[in-house]
């Protein structure tokens, strides 16, 4: 862990402008991400989990460069991604940080064949000018991700969901990236197929020494694939810890609530029940205090006023909650 992280996210903020409901009012700010800081080491899998609207996909898209950031820095191998001036540098970034999207049905161009889809990246980045060699690489990649090479001329609609997701993985992998952002890659798949795709992700990580940012809303999937897990709520990271710790020693009230909300592994399991009342508040407008304050059963007056910062409570376990601070002082 002492090496320099491959990707550093520093104080990242992303706001979206949304039209106001009233006629003559100016646009409002939607704070999709506020002050997110994360370090990602080479070869590890960072799991990002949260409910819909918590900014986990926005985070992934910012890292890949599909969203411009409002403020903050993303530093890849010591190079700030804001300061990429030449075309070469920008190309390099896009080649090395790839993304696999959630929906295998809409993320593939229906008019391109499987082979064209996979080789597209090679053409765009001009990595293999020779047509024959390019095909060979496509063949090799298809075998690697478990696709039948006979299907190279097939169109996406002729594949099942799991196979399409394999095409997506092949598309990302053929550029030899260092980081792959996996944005809910298995949530559209059935459990038996989900397990196949998760196994594929694991085996290619070992083979290519990849770094994953794995985004999902399914905690058991996240725990299975990740080394470390970041729990997000309303645009902020509320807890960051090793994957096993989240189950054995969750500290933030939101993490505890999330854990107790997840359906059990067996009929005989009993878990501590922490219920959060109500729904997630809207991220539009200015926020004051802890984002969870309105729903948290332990909220104090301070929680409504001040925003807690992510602090290290134990070795490698960071929490953004005032309760933990007080616990430490006592």
């Amino acid at each position: 862990m002492s090496d320099q992280p491959i990707l550093q996210i520093r104080d990242l903020c992303k706001d979206f402008k949304v039209r106001s409901a009233k006629l003559f009012e100016g646009p409002k700010q939607l704070h999709a991400l506020s002050h997110v800081s994360l370090d990602i080491q080479k070869g590890e899998t960072l799991g990002v989990i949260g409910e819909s609207g918590c900014g986990k996909s926005t985070l992934g898209r910012c890292v890949v460069g599909l969203h411009s950031v409002t403020s903050g820095d993303i530093i890849y191998k010591g190079k700030n991604l804001k300061e990429l001036h030449t075309k070469e540098e920008r190309r390099n970034r896009h080649k090395n940080i790839q993304i696999v999207f959630q929906d295998p049905y809409s993320s593939l161009n229906p008019r391109m064949t499987c082979g064209q889809l996979i080789e597209e990246g090679l053409i765009v980045h001009n990595l293999e000018p020779d047509k024959k060699k390019r095909r060979e690489r496509v063949f090799a990649m298809m075998q690697k991700v478990g696709l039948d090479v006979q299907h190279i001329e097939r169109f996406p609609h002729e594949f099942s969901g799991g196979q399409r997701q394999r095409i997506n993985v092949a598309r990302a992998l053929i550029l030899n990236p260092e980081i792959i952002v996996c944005d809910e890659p298995v949530s559209a798949l059935d459990v038996s197929i989900q397990a196949q795709v998760l196994n594929l992700f694991r085996s290619i990580q070992k083979e290519f020494n990849l770094t994953y940012i794995f985004i999902s809303h399914d905690l058991s999937v996240i725990k299975h694939v990740s080394d470390r897990i970041a729990i997000m709520y309303l645009g902020t990271v509320v807890e960051l810890c090793a994957a096993d710790k989240i189950y054995h020693n969750p500290l933030h009230p939101y993490t505890k609530a999330l854990l107790s909300a997840i359906p059990p592994d067996s009929p005989f399991e009993t878990r501590e029940q922490i219920k959060l009342e109500g729904d997630i508040p809207s991220p539009i407008g200015d926020m004051k205090g802890c984002p969870l304050a309105g729903r948290c059963p332990y909220a104090t007056a301070r929680c409504h006023e001040e925003r807690p910062q992510l602090r290290e409570v134990e070795e490698g376990h960071q929490v953004a909650c005032f309760l933990m601070e007080q616990g430490k002082q006592n």
Partner: peptide, 24 residues
């Protein structure tokens, strides 16, 4: 059996490969 085995469980301590059901 396949269905029960292919689900990652929260209480798993080791990260074994999931036993997926092959095919579609």
């Amino acid at each position: 059996w396949g269905l029960l085995d292919s689900i990652p469980k929260l209480s798993d301590t080791e990260k074994a490969e999931l036993k997926a059901i092959p095919g579609t």
